[in-house]
Write a protein that binds this DNA or RNA. Sequence first.
DNA 1: ATGGTTGCCTCGCAA
Length: 256
Amino acid sequence: MKLATWNVNSIKIRAAAVAEWLAEHQPDVLALQEIKCETAAFVADTFHAAGYAHVLPIGQKSYNGVAMISRRPFETVLTALPGDETDAQARYAEIKINGLHVINIYAPNGNPVDTEKFPYKLGWLTRLEARLRELMRHNMPFVVMGDYNIIPTDIDCYDPIAWQGDALFQPESRAAFRRMVNLGLTDAVRMFHPRDELYTFWDYQAGAWQRNNGIRIDHILMSPAAADRCINAGIDKSPRGREQPSDHVPVWVELR
DNA sequence: ATGGTTGCCTCGCAA
């Protein structure tokens, strides 16, 4: 079973690129972030044609938005992150397929750190941790994949000094990531590439891609039972070099 | 280098 995640930065602009990637890599489930459209505006036809009959878009106007694309049917478990009924931002989807909970997240960016955006980010991550705790407590196997907007360690960015002061690099953000890992979760990519210089995002500005000035902020965390089934994981950086790319690239994991 | 680029569909915001 192959699972993948990709922040596409607008599905309207990137639908053809996503369909192309699906045809090349044939994941069972693809989790998208930043679809940047309302739920009803999500055009599923392109994915149906590519062999993905089952989609779950969770959108809002202009910003954010996540979607699940699957070859096979799934059960929808949650369409919002629990813990705050007033939070209307489309950042969370949880489905169940073959007994496995597959969670799609678009964590808040949190910049600038001296605004209300940063505490919103930290609060959102605390709510995510609570949900994962709940799944652990019930011994439910799960995978959490998406844009965490967190650079977990110094080796996950090209230039740590340049990221000082950024919400993605703050000690509180990293601590939130560590708390989730410390529940007993495994970082799928680091399982197979423990010290490699690997990135999932390169800014559109200042020739970041050409200079490989990237950061690793898209992650796949696995519960113990899911990690036991994990046979490979990686990052496909090739889409970043194509025409009109997203600033993020796909991350994938294979479970037996 | 307080710059630079992309996508939203605004007369800037978010990333």
